Simulated scan of single mutants.
Amino acid sequence: MTTATDILTADTYDNPFALSHLDALESEAVHIFREVAGEFERPVILFSGGKDSIVMLHLALKAFWPAPVPFSLLHVDTGHNFPEVLAYRDRTVAEHGLRLHVASVQDFIDRGRLRERPDGLRNPLQTVPLLDGIESNKFDAVFGGGRRDEEKARAKERVFSLRDEFGAWDPRRQRPELWSLYNGRHSPGEHVRVFPLSNWTELDVWQYIEREGIELPEIYYAHPRDVFKRDGMWLTAGEWGGPKEGETVERRLVRYRTVGDMSCTGAVDSDAATVADVVTEVAASRLTERGATRADDKVSEAAMEDRKREGYF
């Protein structure tokens, strides 16, 4: 007697035309990029130089090859970014002849539109520069690298996420996306956030990086670094306000699973020096990357959702 499992196994392993799970994810993302190109007037890709935005740009390059990517890039620079990541960002923009818009948190602080937080974190301050950059450039679709496995608030997000005229997210206005049909309709002043990596996991991202041979900033791999411990995380010393009295700097072999800025992103102890090593390490991990290494998500249980309602990524 043939079971459903037998049929699934046969379809997956005996059909020479069946897509691998990475091919299926890639195909879905390429379709999303092309759908947005045909449906919106001024899309933009949020690009930080982190691994998810790098994979997202790689997919966009594939989607429109041999033509150039028909979107510019937008980076919200906190002023506390890792130098290695900024260097990678600038190399990538130059290599592919892309246009980069930079919204600077420091500029908004200097102009009095933002204040420094008592805890020194600047990631939560990105919302105002982001919304200002979207409004001033009249972007109507904004690609983000968010994935549903990262954090419970992001698990509520659709691929096409409508934002109101204030950039705010309302989970009650999420639209159904049956049969991969995406509704980009929006009123003047509103825009849509688009997440091509929604159905990817951290492991999928790393397996795809390995398969495609995608270059990443070196801080994603094990390297010796001077760090100090705060709230259970290894942080890099810098002008942003660390270490404080009683926090001892020590040299450790670490790498970064996710990259925000130096004030909120913790390193993890690791000897994973190659992509294959990282794939093995991630496959064995039982903690999400943000749960393990992002101080800005530990402010409260609803920290991410609160920021998304205000207009965050």
Rank of each mutant, 00 (worst) to 15 (best):
G146L: 00
G146V: 01
R147V: 10
R147K: 14
R147P: 03
E150I: 00
E150H: 04
E150S: 00
E150G: 03
E151N: 08
K152T: 15
R154N: 12
R154D: 07
A155N: 05
A155E: 06
K156Q: 13
E157V: 09
E157Y: 05
S161E: 07
S161N: 13
S161Q: 07
R163D: 11
D164C: 09
E165S: 12
E165V: 13
F166C: 11
F166H: 12
G167T: 06
A168Y: 02
W169T: 01
D170F: 08
D170W: 05
P171N: 04
P171L: 10
R172Q: 12
R173M: 13
R173W: 15
R173I: 09
Q174K: 07
R175I: 01
P176W: 09
P176L: 12
P176T: 09
P176R: 12
P176Q: 13
E177I: 08
L178G: 13
W179L: 15
W179F: 15
S180A: 15
Y182F: 14
N183A: 10
G184W: 04
R185N: 13
R185G: 06
R185L: 11
R185P: 09
R185I: 11
H186F: 01
H186Q: 13
S187R: 15
G189H: 14
G189P: 09
G189R: 15
E190S: 01
E190P: 00
E190N: 05
H191C: 07
H191N: 07
R193H: 08
V194P: 02
V194H: 01
P196G: 08
P196L: 09
L197C: 07
L197I: 07
L197D: 02
L197G: 03
